[in-house]
Design a binder for these strands. Structure first.
Lengths: 337, 337
DNA sequence: TTGTACGCGTTATCAT
DNA sequence: ATGATAACGCGTACAA
């Protein structure tokens, strides 16, 4: 009671209490000592008794391992990043690592965050690029120093790792599922034209439509932004006049799909009896629309475990991984027979 | 080229290049030296030339200031936490501080995250308690060691700071706005009954209803969960039979409001012509519903700056702050005249 | 005001 | 396998 109240908290005290050297304590607690003999138990008991936990600053200073993972996302209100966050944090934490978060809505801001995190000597860096951001140059700058994993996006560097979604598989599942429902024509609401990703997906859509002997029309399928308003407007354009109309619509985002459903409802068309709708991202709204929305769910869990595996591998062995998503079938594509 | 490639990165090299001692470099770069003479400029130039940045581990080890803020939230997919994240990260970053994120969906998980962050010696801790979690005991354990700010929630400890929303003001603005629109009766869809918060809000609702000479009925107002389904069900119950119906409904969450709007649309009732709807949280869906939803917006910016201010004050002076929210008026409560 | 020298708590190295 | 000791990079008390 007379002494300081925090002086317990050093490895020296644990060593003294366990009657071993500080080196042994360090080795036991960091798992660099295989045996589980009396000494090991004594050390662990002493550590627990003193409520000791390593000083990460000191540890990092000596070993250059900080037990931190850096994550850079464009925004937490974007559902993909939010779901990734919820998946990644508990996974990291069991390893007694910690998550250092950077948020940057555009290329410049993301570059700053990346630089900050690198300066912090994070053990690995996971980056979800903002829409339209090209981080290749920035990332390559650090690629030799620490393992970097880019999640999604398009730019590919052979010096950084990349974990993406197998969009080919996604499109195949989606169109295949619609064909199974007996529809014969389908439209596609693509993302923004400037993005190379959108163009690639657009091509995949047509490939799959042909493969399943479905019909589509050039004037049905447009590029545009991922918003409710856009979906609403497109549905109004497509379905308000008595032209030839698609029996199903695939959307590049759940928000677009949601907007379409609102418009269809207003027009007196029923989902899925009159039109089938598929979304993308399996955001929280997908299960709350009425009817509930069939959507492509990114494989968050696999993305996270792959990213962490690649980081554990170190910066010397960058790899590019494509993971198949899951099609969550809900009411918007299932017609009762 | 023959030497190591990272040996630039120490204060010693900067000192050598600027022809001063490491102590001077330290003082200049940490701002503990007021003058801006030739020496200061030489040091800064040298630091920039070598692309030097302090080693936070070494700095933390020496000074016990880690330049990190810990944040614990229940989930990133919850809109309140997500919006808080988007607001807090850029604010922290300008101070060259970093955000250490912990996610815990319940009391036990949050306790673990808090302990981890404290072990990391974060300079301050901001906690958004999970629904129903009582973190008082856990937080008080560390309250003497570091500044802690609880955001929202109910438990109050005089050893930790607290930043909350002035719900009284929120309810006053909401009911006042509805009264201004000329309505005479209003219903309230409260949160879960077990939460003391919900009960308090329920009471405030009645106080404000009386203050504005409006009518309400006991069987209109129910406690329940914050979900789309709940809103849908309640609207069906309230409006499908030809009973006396409220002219406006105040909801404890945007999701409830959204569910109600879907149900009202299905019943052929128009918002706002037949029923006025107000939500809470100003989540992203509020601006995408049709019509757009009037909603109470938590003062994220003030919450963040208050929390950081209280952290800067240190653990000795805990304070409890209540901040007035903003009523974002949209189409769901504005009747054209 | 500036420089010297020590110590923060840990891990790595080198004997034993 | 274990113990003694150096070294990691920085901030600051102290001397100049």
């Amino acid at each position: 009671m007379a002494g300081r109240n925090e002086s317990n908290r050093s490895i020296t005290n644990v060593a003294a209490l366990a009657n071993v050297s500080i080196a042994t304590v360090s080795r036991v607690l960091s798992g660099k000592r295989t045996k589980d003999d009396d000494i090991a138990r004594r050390v662990r008991a002493a550590a627990e008794q003193l409520n000791y936990s390593v000083n990460y600053a000191a540890s990092a200073l000596r070993s250059t391992i900080t037990n931190t993972i850096g994550l850079v996302i464009p925004s937490a209100t974007e559902t993909f990043s939010a779901q990734l966050l919820d998946e990644i944090e508990p996974t990291i934490d069991v390893d007694s690592q910690q998550l250092l978060l950077g948020i940057g809505p555009n290329q410049a801001a993301q570059g700053e965050r990346i630089a900050s995190l690198v300066a912090r000597h994070v053990d690995g860096l996971i980056v979800v690029p903002a829409a339209g951001a090209d981080l290749t140059e920035i990332l390559e700058q650090y690629a030799g120093t620490l393992p970097i994993v880019q999640v999604g996006g398009r730019q590919r560097s052979f010096h950084t790792s990349m974990v993406g979604i197998d969009e080919d598989a996604a499109m195949e599942m989606t169109i295949g599922h619609l064909a199974d429902q007996g529809i014969e024509s389908v439209a596609y609401m693509a993302g923004k034209e400037i993005s190379f990703e959108s163009a690639e997906l657009f091509a995949m859509f047509h490939t799959q439509v042909r493969a399943h002997h479905l019909k589509t029309q050039a004037d049905w399928n447009r590029f545009g932004e991922r918003s409710v308003q856009r979906g609403f407007d497109c549905a109004m354009r497509l379905f308000s006049e008595p032209l030839v109309q698609p029996e199903a619509v695939v959307c590049a985002d759940d928000t677009i799909a949601f907007g379409m459903m609102v418009a269809l409802h207003a027009l007196g068309l029923r989902v899925p009896q009159d039109v089938l709708i598929v979304g993308y991202n399996d955001s929280p709204i997908a299960s709350t629309t009425m009817p509930t929305l069939t959507s492509v769910r990114p494989p968050f869990q696999q993305i996270v475990s792959e990213a962490l595996r690649l980081i554990a591998l170190g910066p010397e062995h960058p790899a590019h991984v494509s993971l198949p998503p899951q099609l969550i079938v809900r009411d918007s594509t299932v017609v009762a027979r």
